[in-house]
């Protein structure tokens, strides 16, 4: 078995997509792990109404917990200079205005960039859509972080979604535990391979066809 990236390394690679001056939103799950690797000068938005908050409170600084400083995942954050608060209507105007780079987890991405975030149907389970459809639709650039395959080894990068769609043709970049793949109008392009993996081996793990970029390279951290 070849080595795949740990969640932490995947998040570190994904955080390289955040540049100083960017406004970004880090979705629940894998994207949240990017929070500790956001470069200086980039501003993180929490969809419950904060822009530019400081590091999260962890168990070493519980005394800094403030009832009114929580991010979208319910974690407590510390304040930072230049932080702004707003209501959720305003927050989603921001989200749908094309000003944010959004990072979301995913269950499936199709070769056209359709995204499935939830396996639930509306009839038999409970909705946990949250703001994901708004984030996917409205992003300036949408980066999806996920493992390349399911626990059973099935490709999550597919020709057609088999799970309920969250938003159509919305994904720009897929970062998995073995590859970085760009969604282009001409199909999926393999940009980076995790060390130890060849493009052919990555294609074997991928249902949708991949074009290998001329300048395909080994992933760097």
């Amino acid at each position: 078995m070849k080595d795949r990236l740990t969640e932490e390394l995947l998040a570190i690679r994904a955080a390289q997509e955040i540049k100083p001056g960017d406004y970004c939103n880090l979705g629940i799950g894998l994207p949240q792990l990017c929070a500790s690797h956001v470069p200086e000068g980039a501003i993180v938005q929490a969809e419950n109404g904060t822009l530019g908050y400081g590091p999260l409170v962890d168990q070493d600084n519980v005394d800094k917990m403030d009832l009114d400083f929580i991010d979208a995942g319910g974690s407590f954050f510390t304040p930072a200079p230049g932080m702004a608060f707003f209501d959720i209507l305003t927050s989603f105007m921001m989200i749908r205005s094309g000003r944010l780079k959004s990072f979301l987890g995913g269950l499936q991405v199709s070769e056209r960039g359709d995204l499935a975030i939830h396996s639930l149907s509306s009839t038999d389970k409970f909705p946990q859509i949250g703001g994901s459809m708004d984030l996917a639709w409205g992003a300036k650039r949408l980066i999806v972080l996920m493992t390349h395959n399911t626990k059973d080894g099935v490709s999550k990068i597919v020709k057609e979604l088999t799970l309920p769609m969250s938003a159509r043709a919305c994904v720009d970049l897929i970062i998995t535990d073995i590859a970085v793949i760009e969604v282009t109008s001409g199909g999926l392009v393999l940009r980076e391979c995790v060390p130890g993996w060849t493009p052919e081996e990555i294609q074997e793990q991928t249902e949708a066809p991949l074009k290998v970029a001329d300048d395909v390279k080994e992933m760097e951290f």
Binding site: L89, F92, R96, G130, G131, M133, D134, G138
Partner: peptide, 15 residues
């Protein structure tokens, strides 16, 4: 009965 929505759409419906 459960009716789903998205956070953004729910806000716009209230608006």
């Amino acid at each position: 009965e459960i009716e789903t929505s998205t956070h953004g759409i729910l806000m716009e419906r209230l608006y």
